[in-house]
Design a protein around this nucleic acid. Structure first.
Lengths: 195, 195
DNA sequence: CAGAGTACATAACAAACGTTGGGTATGTAA
DNA sequence: TTACATACCCAACGTTTGTTATGTACTCTG
């Protein structure tokens, strides 16, 4: 009944790492069973053994994307409230080459998520989760008087809209939006929110 | 030397219409030579006759997307300045089912544009164009005292970021963001900008 | 009226894809 | 030891893709 030889979870983690590698190098369009197998130095049979098929592979890729985004080198929140919200925003923005690559994958994931119903709902919940994180910081900021009163859900939606919209613009013109300008735009935006 | 039977430009326009139809029904992933030919009731030979290959087809699809977006039922700008900026934003937002479908295609176009260098630069210029339109309205608004002083380019980038970021959120949760809430969010955002 | 070039249809093509099933080795349970 | 489930490789299949060559009908030109 227990696995025969190898540690199932560890092996699955290997495949997961290969998925991420392929994703980083060729994006979602290049995410194929063969590419993952090649990156792993194994056969496609191994991949299908641990992941039922392409669908599950893509779904897992989206999970990895969220996890890796969360685990990326992040600025720790210096203080709850408005500074925390600022940190959330800066953590998403592509301030580094690494962050740029990550966001490129993220944006291209929207395409596959829009195409598949299951991935669609998963993505919907992801955004809901991000908004919840924003919301928590916003509520504190409002209590501390750093932000004016108002529906925190709507403020969260606005802040996330600004953030992701800026991501897209940076992606298509990285030279025009260096890190300093991104932070300046974010700070100006937050200043407006506080008024 | 002149075309034998048909009007070249008219026929090409037919193909263009078929491209748009396929795009609206199946998005960019479903944009294939055969799909376009089928939508046209013709063969793939016809398509390759008027468009060299897939690349040109996709490039043309992006052109159509921009044109159709510009030609979509739009609100006329009631007055120059801040109202004009508001109109620009509302014209982009997916306030109607038609606008929702259009934005779905638009977002999925980011993926193909990120993959191909030529399409990438084309998309970069597209965004530059949109920012220029925003900027024009912003400059007037600043002169009229509707907006505080500040680099109009940065304000334009911020406004466009908010708009496209909101588009993405609406796309993944249309029920949560009905038209009224979108306009309310936009108006609140504009009010913050004016402070 | 002959010839040439255009406007397509048809079909063959190789490449790449996801999926599937057979085969083998190796471990655990009886 | 026997039996079975796991882990995995290998190979083939059918499909879909973009590309391209061939063939045919037509219409302008000369």
């Amino acid at each position: 009944m227990p696995p025969a030889r190898a540690d199932h979870d560890a092996r699955r983690e290997d495949v997961s790492a290969a998925v991420w590698q392929v994703l980083a190098e060729h994006g979602f369009p290049g995410l194929t069973l063969r590419a993952v197998a090649a990156a792993l130095g194994a056969s496609t049979g191994l991949v299908t053994h641990y992941f039922g098929g392409k669908r599950e592979l893509v779904a897992h890729a989206l999970d990895i994307l969220e996890i890796r985004t969360a685990q990326r080198t992040r600025l720790a929140a210096p203080a709850p409230g408005l500074p925390a919200l600022r940190t959330h925003i800066l953590n998403i923005l592509p301030l580094t080459p690494d962050g740029l690559a990550m966001n490129r994958i993220w944006v291209s994931s929207w395409d596959v998520a829009l195409a598949d119903p299951d991935l669609f709902t998963a993505q919907t919940q992801r955004y809901e989760r991000i908004r919840a994180a924003f919301r928590a910081a916003i509520v504190v900021a409002q209590k501390q008087g750093e932000l004016p009163a108002g529906d925190p859900d709507e403020v969260a939606a606005t802040a996330l809209a600004f953030t992701h919209g800026l991501v897209v613009q940076v992606l298509f013109d990285p030279d025009r939006f260096p890190a300093e300008q991104q932070t300046r735009l974010a700070d100006d935006f937050l200043a407006k929110l506080g008024a």
